[in-house]
Amino acid sequence: MSDTSPVQYWYNTKTGEVEESRDRSSWSHRMGPYPTREAAHGALDSAQHRNEEWEREDTDWRGRD
């Protein structure tokens, strides 16, 4: 029986490399999964953008009466 699961990609924060689902490193160094190699490669940028957006939302929320 063959595995027909789609390949997922992970970003390794220790090495800066993109890994496929079958050769993942320790969970403590991974971000993902991502559907494409390109999305995994941009993991840190995506996380930074998301965190900045959440911070803006929190600031707006705190400013409300």
Rank of each mutant, 00 (worst) to 15 (best):
W54R: 15
W54G: 01
E57K: 15
S25A: 12
L44R: 09
S5G: 12
S25G: 15
S21Q: 12
S2R: 11
S5I: 01
G42R: 11
K14I: 00
W54K: 14
Y34W: 13
E17M: 09
V7G: 06
E53N: 02
L44P: 00
D23E: 12
S21G: 15
N51F: 06
P33E: 10
M1T: 12
M1V: 11
R24G: 06
A43L: 08
G32F: 07
R22N: 13
E19Q: 10
E57A: 14
D23Y: 06
D65Y: 11
T59I: 13
Q8R: 12
S46F: 08
R30D: 09
W61T: 14
T59C: 03
P35A: 14
G16F: 03
P6F: 04
A43Y: 03
E38P: 06
W27N: 09
T36R: 09
W10N: 01
T15D: 07
P6V: 02
R64H: 11
N12S: 11
T59A: 11
P33H: 06
R24P: 01
D65E: 15
E55D: 14
D58T: 07
G16Q: 02
A43C: 07
D58K: 05
E53V: 05
K14Q: 13
R62S: 14
H49D: 09
A39N: 08
W61P: 01
M31N: 00
D60C: 09
D58G: 05
H29C: 05
R30V: 01
E53H: 05
